[in-house]
């Protein structure tokens, strides 16, 4: 989504104001002259300044440009589903991996994203299973990344090499 430069400028100004607002409550501890609020204050001021200039320059084209420009994909429902499938897959992973284990979750993530891209389940499920098993073997079993085992936990001793 492309927005007009005035809005880009306002976005940076808003972040700058939030930073300064938060930093104002940070008091220097003990005898320090500059406290934890000093850098956020400087950065926030900089953001307001630069955001202001961007917004001002954007005013020149405010009449001729639309406030925002929707990308091509967002005109179809399918485009939205595809776009959202990535953050949704990550969210799904974060939510269920501890309970379901990496193996099962990775299969689900694969199948979900593949299905959204139009790959039929009869191909998506085996592809997901193979990928998940290979990743588990490499990262959990050999490289000892502490990926959750989920239901396999009781036998995970045999699966660590």
């Amino acid at each position: 989504m492309k927005v007009q430069d005035v809005l880009v400028g306002l976005f940076f100004i808003a972040i700058g104001i939030l930073m300064i607002e938060y930093a104002a409550d940070l008091k220097p501890p003990r005898h320090l002259k500059f406290g934890p609020g000093f850098f956020p204050l400087i950065i926030g001021s900089g953001l307001i300044l630069v955001g202001g200039i961007i917004a001002l320059l954007g005013l020149r084209t405010l009449r001729t440009e639309p406030l925002w420009h929707r990308p091509e994909w967002s005109r179809t429902r399918q485009g939205w589903v595809r776009f959202c499938s990535i953050p949704a897959a990550i969210a799904l992973y974060v939510l269920i991996v501890d309970a379901a284990g990496f193996l099962l979750t990775a299969i689900l993530v694969m199948v979900l994203v593949l299905a959204v891209s139009g790959v039929p389940l009869r191909r998506g499920v085996p592809a997901g299973a193979v990928t998940a098993v290979v990743l588990t073997a490499i990262f959990a079993s050999v490289l000892h990344v502490p990926l959750p085992w989920g239901p396999l936990q009781t036998i995970s001793g045999w699966l660590l090499w």
Partner: peptide
């Protein structure tokens, strides 16, 4: 027995006394 232990893991045996500790890897 594998199936049984999988089910037991689901049931959650946390906090109770475990005579055979440790039965799986320790983190």
């Amino acid at each position: 027995s594998v199936l049984a232990s999988v089910l037991m893991a689901f049931a959650g045996l946390a906090g109770t006394a475990q005579a055979d500790y440790p039965e799986r890897p320790v983190t």
